[in-house]
């Protein structure tokens, strides 16, 4: 069990590290997908050890929400690219005080 806890924590940390280090908005969305998948992996591991099928239903709903989120995020990225001809996240700092 500790193997899967450590593995999914490592994957989540890699996703958070990627959120900090990369500038491209599409890669930031991919890091979010990586973090969602690490949470899914932990849920499936607990489901297998607990002998219950409810966590796998939660994983199913997570996949559904992730699909909707990726669609909306990518269309927002396309709109931002149309306005500024770039997907660099550091260009979008208009709300910075």
């Amino acid at each position: 069990m500790e193997f899967y806890v450590v593995l999914s924590t490592i994957l989540f940390s890699i996703g958070a590290f990627g959120m900090l280090i990369r500038k491209n908005m599409i890669i930031l969305l991919m890091c979010i997908e990586l973090m969602l998948n690490s949470a899914n992996l932990l849920l499936v591991a607990f489901s297998s050890y607990y002998g219950s099928s409810d966590p796998q239903i939660f994983v199913f709903f997570t996949v559904v929400v992730a699909a909707a989120e990726a669609t909306i995020g990518l269309s927002i990225i396309i709109m931002a690219y149309r306005n500024s001809k770039s997907t660099d996240i550091s260009l979008f700092n208009n709300l910075k005080g």
């Binding site: 593995l7 490592i10 994957l11 890699i14 590290f17 990627g18 990369r22 890669i27 890091c31 990586l34």
Partner: peptide, 9 residues
């Protein structure tokens, strides 16, 4: 898995 996730980033 860890190696390919690092390569993603």
């Amino acid at each position: 898995t860890i190696g390919s996730a690092l390569m993603v980033v």
